[in-house]
């Protein structure tokens, strides 16, 4: 399949957050500030790329030859968890500021459905190596786009006079819902499989 279509599809039509509703916890949790949202997007980009390539290789070279693809879920979770641990250690060492800003949410990517989701989707759709790479890139870009737009909206809404019953998570979910409605406009833009 055309690489450009895969990137656009992963980013807009099948946006992981706004149309597949995967990765909602970091979407709601780290979207108060644009700066942390940017850091989180970068972390997700890195983890998605590494996890996709690793799980793809494991699927092709270990699970399929041994005929144990029923172990897919548990193997993928293990691989992703250890990858995230490595990322966390690297960020702690390299950028203590970013590490403080992301706080609890970096380990949260360990159990992030978006990352497990992309690993499973790659295998289910039978993508080859290049497609896996660009699907991960597009999905991470879409995640970052949604997170950054949402963080911008939430920063603006901090000064709004929101009714008490709708403050906090409630208004965040309403905003995310309308954003998701807007993204529905991209449906049918690229062939979905």
């Amino acid at each position: 399949m055309n690489i450009l279509i895969i990137v656009l599809m992963a980013m807009l039509t099948e946006n992981f957050v706004l149309s597949k509703f995967l990765g909602i916890c970091p979407f709601l949790g780290v979207s108060r500030r644009i700066s942390t949202a940017l850091g989180m997007s970068m972390a997700v980009l890195f983890v998605m790329l590494v996890a996709s390539l690793l799980t793809y290789a494991i699927h092709i070279h270990i699970l399929l030859p041994l005929d144990v693809s029923y172990l897919q879920t548990i193997v993928f979770i293990l691989v992703i968890a250890s990858t995230v641990q490595l990322t966390e250690m690297a960020i702690q060492k390299l950028s203590p500021g970013l590490y403080d800003a992301l706080g609890i949410f970096l380990p949260l990517i360990t159990t992030n459905c978006a990352v497990l989701g992309i690993a499973v989707l790659n295998v289910d759709r039978g993508y080859h190596l290049l497609e896996v790479l660009f699907f991960a890139l597009g999905a991470a870009a879409g995640f970052g786009l949604a997170l950054l737009l949402f963080a911008g909206l939430r920063e603006t809404m901090e000064t709004a006079d929101i009714p008490k019953s709708f403050q906090g998570a409630a208004i965040a979910l309403v905003t995310a819902g309308i954003l998701s409605l807007a993204f529905m406009g991209f449906s049918g833009l690229a062939p979905t499989s």
Binding site: L148, L149, G152, G185, S187, G188, L189
Partner: peptide, 24 residues
Amino acid sequence: IRLWGGYPEGVSFAVLLMNACVPM
């Protein structure tokens, strides 16, 4: 959206999407 999307008309989606970009 008009030329390549699933919906024949895209003005309302386009305005909503750009609304979301306004803070940026």
